[in-house]
Simulated assay, not measured.
Amino acid sequence: MSLAMIKYAAIGIAVLLIATECVLRWGAGLGDPPLARLDPSTEYELVPSATYRRWGNTIAINANGMRAPEHPALPANQDRHLLLIGDSVIYGGHFLDQSETISARLGELLGDDPRLAGCTLRVLPMAVSSWGLVNQAAFLKKHGPFGASAAGIVVSAHDLYDVPGATSDILPYRTEPSWTAIGDALQAVTERYLRSSHATADSQSPAVRAQLSLAALDQIADTLMDQNVRPILIYHPTTMERSGTIRAAQSRFLEWSEARGIPFLDLGMVQMAENDYRDAIHPTATGAQRIAQTIAPVIGKSLPRCLDF
C-alpha cells in the first residue's frame, strides 16, 4: 500500500469516527451518562447538582441527589412538600424527559388542586433506579423527609425481594463520565451484556429477602410517621400481572398496609393502554401521566389545605 493510500485511509477513518461521534452525541443523545457515587449506607446515590442530556432527554439532579428542581430543606408556612419514594419507575429512567416523569406530572396536577391554592407545592422524588426498600430506608434516615406533609411509597413485585447485593454488583449508573459518545455506546453495550449474562442466583433465600424488605418498609413508615408525614403505599403492577399472573407480592404488600393501618392504592385497578408501558414495568410519558392522574386525588387529600374556604 502506498503512502498516499495510507493517508487517504487514515483521513477516511478519521472522518468516519467524527461522523459517528456526532451522530451518537447529537442524534442518539449519548456521551453524557448520569453519574452515581458509592455510599456506605445507601449503597449508591446520584451525584448531586448535575444536569445531563441522555437519549435526547434532560436529567437534572438537585443538590439533594433527587431528579427534581432545587428546593429548600424545609417548606415555608404556606408551602407543601410531598415525597414520592421509589425506584426507576419514579425516577423515570433515561427515556423520559424530566418534565415527563410521574413526579413532575403529579406536581402539575396538584398545582391545580383548589385545596392547595395559595401554596407552593413541591413533589420530591426520593427515587433512584434499582433502589430497593432497604436503599430507600437508608436514604430517608440519612436525609429526613425534607418537611414533607405526605409521602407516597411506590412499590412493585420485585421490591419484595430486592435487597442490596442480592443479584448483581453492576450499578445502573456510571461512576465516571464518558469522554466520547462512541466510548459511551460501547460501554452501554458491554453493560447490557454483563447484566444479561450475570448469574441470577442469590445468596439469600426469597423468604429472607422479603423479610429484609418488609422490615425496611416498616422503617420507612416509622420514620415518616414519627415526623408527622402521612404515608400511602402505592402498588405498581407489571404488564404480566395485568395479564393475569398471580399477584403474590401485591398480596404481601396489601397485608402489610392493612396491618399498619396505612392506605393502599393499587394501580392495577387503573386501566392502562398498551402504549402506556415502555417495557414490562416502566411507564412511557403517557403512562406516567395516567399514573399521576390516579395518584393526585388520593394523595392530595393527605396534604393540609393552604387556605381556608
Score class of each variant (00 low, 15 high):
10 A>W: 01
11 I>N: 07
13 I>V: 09
15 V>W: 05
23 V>W: 13
26 W>M: 02
28 A>V: 10
29 G>T: 04
29 G>H: 06
32 D>E: 09
32 D>L: 10
41 S>W: 08
41 S>C: 12
43 E>L: 02
44 Y>G: 02
45 E>G: 11
47 V>H: 06
59 I>C: 10
63 A>N: 12
65 G>Y: 00
65 G>D: 04
68 A>H: 00
75 P>C: 08
83 L>N: 01
83 L>H: 04
84 L>E: 04
87 D>G: 05
87 D>T: 03
95 F>I: 15
114 P>K: 02
114 P>C: 03
116 L>Y: 00
116 L>D: 02
124 L>P: 01
127 A>M: 00
130 S>R: 07
132 G>C: 00
141 K>Y: 05
141 K>M: 06
142 K>W: 07
149 S>K: 14
169 D>T: 07
170 I>R: 00
175 T>N: 04
187 Q>V: 04
193 Y>E: 14
203 S>Y: 13
205 S>A: 14
208 V>K: 15
209 R>F: 05
210 A>C: 07
211 Q>G: 13
216 A>F: 11
216 A>Y: 14
219 Q>F: 14
236 H>Y: 15
239 T>I: 06
242 R>Y: 09
244 G>Y: 06
247 R>E: 11
254 L>V: 15
255 E>R: 14
262 I>E: 15
266 D>W: 02
268 G>R: 01
270 V>N: 07
275 N>C: 13
281 I>E: 09
282 H>S: 02
288 A>M: 07
295 I>S: 02
301 K>F: 03
